[in-house]
């Protein structure tokens, strides 16, 4: 399962560092690609130099992103035949009902509110790895 890769779409460098460390600490050694705004995420998924590289097995998506909002990234992912089956886990500070509803309506597979507490965050990332990288079956390319 370690050939599965993760696309992390996150504009906050602190959150990025925390996330990468938490993945490592949980022995999630899968390759992680980081996109630092919505436009980079779209570029990577649709026009990347990596068209021959495998698409990510799961996308961790922040909502409040510069340039292209996370919801728009989500819509683009779901609208394209190549990416429509990739699991998308929305990872955000928000817990507004409107955001949750919009994300699910637009095809998110999960909505996770980033826990502030360090230990809760570590637990959340462990659960994430267990479920999305091990337990969950993804559609074949």
């Amino acid at each position: 399962m370690s050939n599965r890769t993760i696309l992390l779409v996150e504009d906050n460098p602190d959150d990025e560092a925390l996330m990468l460390r938490a993945l490592k600490k949980n022995n999630i050694l899968n390759k992680v690609t980081v996109a630092r705004d919505g436009a980079q995420a779209i570029e990577h998924l649709f026009n990347g130099p990596s068209a021959d590289l495998p698409l990510p097995s799961v996308i961790l998506l922040d909502l409040q992103l510069p340039k292209v909002h996370g919801l728009e990234v989500l819509r683009r992912i779901r609208a394209d035949e190549r990416t429509q089956a990739i699991p998308v886990v929305v990872l955000t500070s928000s817990r507004l009902q409107e955001d949750i509803l919009k994300c699910y309506r637009d095809g998110a597979n999960a909505f996770v509110r980033k826990p502030v507490s360090f230990s809760d965050f570590a637990t959340a990332m462990n659960t994430f790895g267990m479920f999305w990288l091990h337990l969950n079956e993804v559609a074949a390319d």
């Binding site: 602190d14 959150d15 925390l18 500070s93 502030v116 965050f121």
Partner: peptide, 11 residues
């Protein structure tokens, strides 16, 4: 958002 950094890095 800044709270993640405070809590995370002190952790």
């Amino acid at each position: 958002a800044p709270l993640h950094a405070l809590s995370g890095f002190s952790g």
